[in-house]
Design a protein around this nucleic acid. Structure first.
Lengths: 187, 187
DNA sequence: GTCTATAGCTAGATAGAC
DNA sequence: GTCTATCTAGCTATAGAC
């Protein structure tokens, strides 16, 4: 068999960059081909189901990255809850490139994308809420508070990315992460 | 002169629905024609500069609506600051149809749209922050707090719309508005 | 001012050589 | 497995009749 010109990991990285910055309809096959270094026909060889399958793969890949990095650091049993929170928020900051990169949930949740990826977006958001709820509980918050605080953290991360982009000021995102940390640790 | 088949206000309403739900690239001329009840060529008669001019008109029209309704109710000198806040948040809830409709800022701030409408998005967000800052000051908040709280309110509104959509649960948006009100009024 | 018809282009997707 | 070449459908935009 002829070897892959571009390994899966690099290809997924390119696809992810395009979908998260342009959204589903905004991402053209030419964009995706250029970002991966493959020709359109080669992309179709890897994804016979086409563009939707490419976006699905990006969602899965991103979910795994979040699981292996952000979730893992937030739930790491070897660290104190306080340290886990700091590590997790630090990884979140990296994940969004200090606020310079968009969230794939947001990018794929405009009308056409939303109908195609609703399930994965909901699952992904549920996972974030569960993880933040767990750390709230570990820090001694009552269960209802832990859940509410988790939803609130998700809201603030998503909102601050939008506002950072709109106002062209990534300190909005950075301050939000700092506020989340302070709020969790002072309770 | 032959009369307009559809008056400007109705036409803009249709254009707005499409752009805010589908984004800039996702909104096709066929979508826009259908939503307005005009044919494509008639839309081009009204907007010789094309699709971008249509989106610009939507931004201007939305800005005016926000100015005439949300900003006005938040700054209305005949009411107490407390009542103004309640009225303003109530109008915001209506503006987003209880959390069922997307924000035009978000819809137009994906890559292609962002480069085209960056200025208007920034101006619009600045206006929201200024308005909320004013009500914070009227409620006795120190200037720096009033500004931070205003940015925070914008973040939470934007974020809760994303999370409401993603988790398919508009109570997230409703709770966020309630929380903003409670937080402002208890200080 | 609105319409039908269509130009010119790019989209997503496929065929078949290598 | 990757490529060039191509298909069809949809896109934005325009021409010209009424």
């Amino acid at each position: 068999m002829r070897p892959q010109k571009v390994i899966d990991k690099e290809m997924l990285s390119g696809l992810t960059d395009v979908f998260r910055s342009k959204g589903y309809e905004g991402a053209s096959l030419n964009d995706l081909a250029q970002a991966t270094g493959l020709k359109k026909a080669s992309l179709y060889h890897r994804f016979p189901e086409g563009k939707q399958a490419m976006a699905n793969a990006v969602m899965d890949h991103t979910g795994k990255w979040v699981e292996d990095n952000i979730v893992k650091s937030l739930l790491d049993a070897d660290e104190s809850p306080q340290q886990r929170l700091k590590n997790g928020l630090s990884n979140i900051k990296m994940f969004y490139d200090e606020g310079n990169k968009d969230c794939i949930f947001r990018a794929l949740s405009m009308q056409a994308g939303l109908t195609l990826f609703a399930e994965q977006i909901k699952e992904g958001m549920d996972a974030w809420v569960s993880t933040f709820t767990a750390i709230g509980l570990a820090l001694g918050q009552p269960e209802q508070d832990a859940h509410n605080n988790a939803v609130q953290a998700l809201i603030e991360i998503q909102g601050s990315l939008i506002v950072s982009r709109g106002m062209n000021d990534i300190t909005v995102f950075e301050n939000t992460l700092k506020n989340i940390e302070v709020r969790y640790l002072k309770e």
